[in-house]
């Protein structure tokens, strides 16, 4: 199939960028979206043009490296699918596709479709962990975790940190990402000791990074490749409000 691509080209973080048009011919319907870009890049390099920079690694939908907007949708039109797992058979000849990087103040553009998601790491640094140093863990089966709780925690823990939620949110909010980690750890018995501190400090870190405020658009949930539910946002709000109202230490003792 033949496609027309409009791709955001930007040489560096502070350089101005613009959409540039490319025609790609003879795309195989079984190739993945990134393989289609590989083919384009190979052509660009061969004729001496700079290839399009984009992040990717596993190409199996699990590492969270890849991701950009395709016609206004984070990771493109297929639900629960990262761009590396999006295959060209979902497009047809003559389609015009507009590829843009995630746009968010907290995700500065590095180059072309590549952004810096370091802000996500800093949110995790603020409390997205359980304080347990190597060697200090008790026997694993000492604390049973009811299966439904473990399953729910798992649902949240699947987040791959891709940033699609932020990219699609009209407010540029990082609530889904943050709440997925808060939800994962706050549900488990192991995470209880730091539960309210975690909610407080991670929400604050999120605000400091310059993400927007969540007004419950639920766009994030619609594009999340792992189908993380906005129920986790409500959960996080609950823990955050409790911690704010009663103080994190006190709430933890009470709970």
């Amino acid at each position: 199939m033949d496609l027309i691509l409009h791709i955001w080209r930007q040489t560096g973080p502070s350089a101005p960028g613009k959409m540039v048009k490319y025609e790609v011919k003879g795309v195989n319907e079984h190739s993945s979206f990134l393989e289609m870009l590989d083919v384009l890049n190979e052509q660009l390099v061969t004729r001496g043009d700079e290839p399009v920079a984009f992040d990717h690694d596993c190409r199996e939908g699990i590492c969270g490296s890849c991701g950009f907007m395709i016609n206004g949708e984070a990771h493109g039109p297929q639900p629960a699918t990262t761009v590396c797992q999006l295959h060209m058979r979902h497009f047809k000849t003559g389609d015009e596709l507009h590829l843009e990087p995630w746009r968010s103040r907290a995700f500065p553009i590095v180059k072309d479709l590549m952004v810096d998601r370091g802000s996500f790491d800093r949110i995790i640094q603020a409390g997205g962990f359980i304080t347990v140093s190597t060697g200090s863990a008790p026997e694993a089966n000492l604390t049973p975790v009811p299966k439904p709780i473990a399953d729910q925690a798992f649902d949240a823990a699947q987040c791959i940190g891709c940033g699609a939620c932020v990219a699609q949110c009209p407010n540029g909010a990082a609530q889904l990402f943050t709440s997925a980690k808060v939800g994962h750890l706050n549900l488990l018995p192991q995470g209880q000791a730091e539960r309210y501190d975690r909610a407080l400090s991670m929400v604050e870190a999120m605000e400091q990074e310059g993400f927007g405020y969540c007004s419950n658009f639920a766009e994030c949930e619609a594009v999340c490749p792992k189908g993380i539910s906005i129920d986790f946002i409500a959960r996080m709000n609950r823990d955050y409000i409790k911690a704010k109202a009663f103080g994190s230490a006190k709430t933890a003792v009470k709970a």
Binding site: H6, N71, G72, E73, E100, R105, Q168, G210, G212
Partner: peptide, 10 residues
């Protein structure tokens, strides 16, 4: 939070 808007509307 999104100083640069998308060229192609979301």
């Amino acid at each position: 939070a999104r100083p640069a808007r998308y060229e192609y509307k979301e």
